[in-house]
Design a protein around this nucleic acid. Structure first.
Length: 231
DNA sequence: CGTATTTGACCAGCGC
DNA sequence: GCGCTGGTCAAATACG
């Protein structure tokens, strides 16, 4: 599941309070994602320190056990959430194939409503994307384009996300030695989605990709993307 | 030759 | 008002 799929079809509110970030970290570790989280992995040296600490501090060992148990429990919850997400997506696809016109209208309405109440900040190491909505914000708030931030490990400033992007600018940004590139969805002006791609200051192998807006068209098929030479 | 990318110029917003 | 910064435009250039 890609960001594109989520944004083009439906957004699921997986927000379960502070649990969300923990789940994300759990998933990153369990699935060996592309994302390199500085606080999500332990080096061999750190492992040795932990082992030594465990021998010296029984209470810390107990704490570690509790953390591991919590980690396992969260992994289980994440699996359940992913499963329900898959089921919902299957339903959505089924609905779209049966009555696409009526569905897209309602889906667009739903997305507009969500855009009004959500400000998204996503950290993801996969090619997929998930949305975290803030239910506390009033629905009457000014409609803002949905913004998501994705961290991706990549060698170049290009990364495949299922859409065809056209570069329209590049700029050196303050406090960052690497330039920021600006892209528009090639379906523009019909599609309002833009993305900014920039290298992380701490780790140049990590790209910070900021998406603004939502695609108002279906995701191009892989064959179409190949024909167009999508990056 | 058509399309995509590059890059300097321009503009708007913001803080002082 | 001025300077700084981020975002966008558009002419020039590269590429297939």
């Amino acid at each position: 599941m890609g960001s594109s799929t989520d944004s083009s079809i439906i957004s699921l509110d997986l927000s379960i309070g502070s649990l969300q970030s923990s789940i994300n970290h759990t998933r990153h570790r369990n699935e060996n994602s592309e994302l390199s989280l500085s606080h999500g992995r332990r080096t061999k040296k750190e492992e040795g320190v932990v082992q030594g600490t465990l021998q010296a501090e029984p209470e810390m060992a107990e704490e570690m056990r509790r953390v591991v148990e919590e980690n396992t429990r969260l992994a289980g919850m994440l699996a359940a959430i992913c499963e329900s997400h898959r089921a919902l997506r299957a339903q959505v696809i089924e609905m779209m194939s049966s009555s696409p016109s009526s569905f897209t209208a309602s889906a667009m309405k739903k997305r507009k409503l969500e855009a009004a109440v959500s400000q998204v900040d996503v950290v993801s190491g996969q090619k997929e994307n998930s949305w975290r909505c803030s239910p506390a914000k009033p629905a009457t708030e000014e409609v803002k384009p949905r913004v998501s931030k994705v961290y991706i490990r990549a060698d170049g400033l290009e990364q495949k996300d299922g859409y065809h992007w056209r570069k329209y600018g590049q700029k050196m940004i303050r406090d960052n030695p690497y330039p920021r590139a600006y892209f528009r969805c090639s379906f523009a002006p019909v599609c309002p989605v833009k993305k900014k791609v920039q290298r992380c200051t701490e780790n140049q192998s990590v790209l910070v990709v900021t998406y603004e807006g939502e695609h108002n068209h279906v995701q191009p098929s892989p064959a179409e993307l190949d024909l167009n030479g999508v990056s």
